[in-house]
Amino acid sequence: MKAVVCKAWGLPDSLEVQELPDLVAGPGQVVIDVKAAGVNFPDVLIIEGKYQVRPELPFTPGSEISGVIKAVGAGVAGIKIGDQVIAFTAQGGFAQQVVAQAQAVMPMPPGMAFDIAAAITLTYGTSHHAIVDRAALMPGETMLVLGAAGGVGLAAIDIGKALGARVIAAASTDDKLAVCREHGADATINYTTENLREAIKAATGGNGPDVIYDPVGGAYTEAAFRAIGWRGRYLVVGFANGEIPKLPLNLMLLKGASLIGVFWGEFAKREPKANMAAMRQLLGWLSEGKIRPRISGRYALEDTARALNDMAARKVTGKVVIVP
């Protein structure tokens, strides 16, 4: 089988596509023929050695996939060869086959396309964990989403609207904001042409948002936090900007506000039952049309480096997938 291999920390162009032996399912594991694999910003950081977790070299990147069960290991119940499934794996997704723990596999709903199935695990899982579990966003509240046209950003808009909240989307271009409005954003802010703090005040009547969803970091963080509402909850999701910001703690004191960390991968590992319950809710919303993953690009396995370069260059709206 073919797989993308990272042999040394570096940029996407250093990745290689290699022919490797077919995989074998160990106890409690399954082998999946990969039909689609979601590409995420952490994949760019992982191959550069800049992510919170460093796999041992060499490894195959890619953590969310959809496909068909090829083999089942000892002790696995409720999964059989030929089943169409969604899986989250620590690594290995950018390949024709992947090994997954059986507990990390769930059935695809009937009629779901493989690319949509591969686009829901990490981005929607992260946003659901952040907004529902960590921030407890309530109907009628207001949420600001930074980096709103990216994968987790659009997922956050979808989830916020599904919960009955008012959503303000902030992004870097008018084209990206148009995509956010298509996904239901009630108001938009272009933070390259507008003063972010003042624009947030204007969009909230001076009250500030109840929840701020921030996968960007950098200079936008303090400006956004200074505009947060009383008892606001600020979700620290990631640092796509590349800069980890520092905040004066008096800002939390003055607003009675909370700074909340979001690490979905660790949540999924430590609380698998809660994570599966969240995924079931997401799949239910998907079937009801309340959430709509946006697939903006599909790449062959041999074009994985280009997909990651496009992600790093902020050329991606919504999700892109690798189709082996």
Rank of each mutant, 00 (worst) to 15 (best):
L11K: 15
V17L: 14
E19L: 13
P21Q: 13
D22M: 07
V31T: 10
I32Y: 09
I32P: 00
A37F: 00
P58R: 12
V68S: 12
V76G: 03
G82P: 05
F88S: 15
G93Q: 11
Q96Y: 11
M106C: 04
P109V: 04
F114W: 06
I116G: 01
A118G: 06
T123D: 13
T123A: 15
T126W: 01
D133Y: 14
M138K: 15
G140H: 11
L146C: 11
A148C: 14
V167W: 05
A171K: 01
C180N: 10
R181F: 06
I189P: 00
E194M: 11
N195W: 08
E198M: 09
A199N: 08
A199D: 05
T204I: 07
N207S: 13
P209W: 10
D210W: 04
D210A: 10
T221L: 14
A223C: 06
A224C: 08
A224P: 00
A227I: 03
A227H: 04
R233C: 07
I244P: 02
L247Y: 04
N250W: 13
G256H: 12
L259N: 04
K273D: 15
M276W: 08
M276Y: 05
M279E: 07
P293E: 09
R294A: 11
I295D: 08
S296I: 01
A312C: 12
V316T: 09
K319Q: 08
V320E: 04
